[in-house]
Amino acid sequence: MSSTALAPAPAGTDERLTGVPGEPLAHRRYRRMRFIRRFEETLLQLFEEGALNGTTHACIGQEADAVAVTEHLADGDHIFSNHRCHGHYLAHSGDALGLMAEIMGKEAGVCRGMGGSQHICAPGFKSNGVQGGIVPNAAGIALANQLDGDGAVSVVFIGDGTLGEGVVYETLNMAALWRLPLLVVCEDNRWAQSTPVAANLAGDMAARFAAFGVPVREIDSTDVEELSTVAGEEVAAVRAGDGPRVLLIHTYRLCHHSKSDDERPQDEIDAHWLVEPLVVHGRRLDGADRSRIDDEVEAALAEVVATARALP
């Protein structure tokens, strides 16, 4: 797949965060993942300083999923995300200032400070903090797309923990019956808050979707290139009108669930830091390019934070 087939950087955003025109696709992917990583690390630091109110759920370790899937979406497509939505939103929109201002509770925030970290709305994107309920909402958007006949795709991001909610299965059934253009991206990060998947989930995860006749594409990877390839195929199949599909990504959340709640085994976490998305993909860039991109992201984010802090 050529880079021109992938979604361009959103207009009006800082290209140091979303992609510099003409740079190789590998650079742009690294840049976008680095942007999401550093945005969230910055958030956690701001919480430590007491500069932020409430809570947040970082996707550190899962950035490749967001970048890979959103690359294949077009104007008219819609993403519904969950409590852990920053990566999806930033990959979709590049709107660092809008999200930072929102989490800071500023009037200039993307939802004027009403939504905060997990209730985001912007063109082509929404998120909500209650598990499960966003799946039928995304299916309803898919039904609207089907009625409109516009070829648009509705994507919903869920996690392994969401699979405990009954309405997910009600919706899978109806989406399959009605052949809705819905892509469910299930990010299995192996922990639902503090509970390991083994204590939460009986049987086989993929079989839960397959039971409804919904095709499941399963991948265990933190490699943005691999993920982008399969995400592109899944989005294309949904767009072709073949009905709903599931992209099941086995990944890992490197940080705590929200701010400081982590009782997971340290050796398990340490092992996953060795194969996290920036490490895996970063090897494809030479050191000078990585450093330059890192510096550009850092400078751009510093401006975002300074600008957001100064907002009323």
């Binding site: 909402n137 039904l143 609207a144 009954g166 309405v167 009600e170 109806m174």
Partner: peptide
């Protein structure tokens, strides 16, 4: 096309309705 009988799934009926409404229906 616009009058659809559903499975016995009130949560999804409401949730799909909400999604339709968000999309302008």
């Amino acid at each position: 096309q616009r009058v659809r009988t559903t499975p016995i799934s009130e949560g999804a009926i409401a949730g799909i309705s909400a999604g339709l409404a968000l999309a302008g229906y």
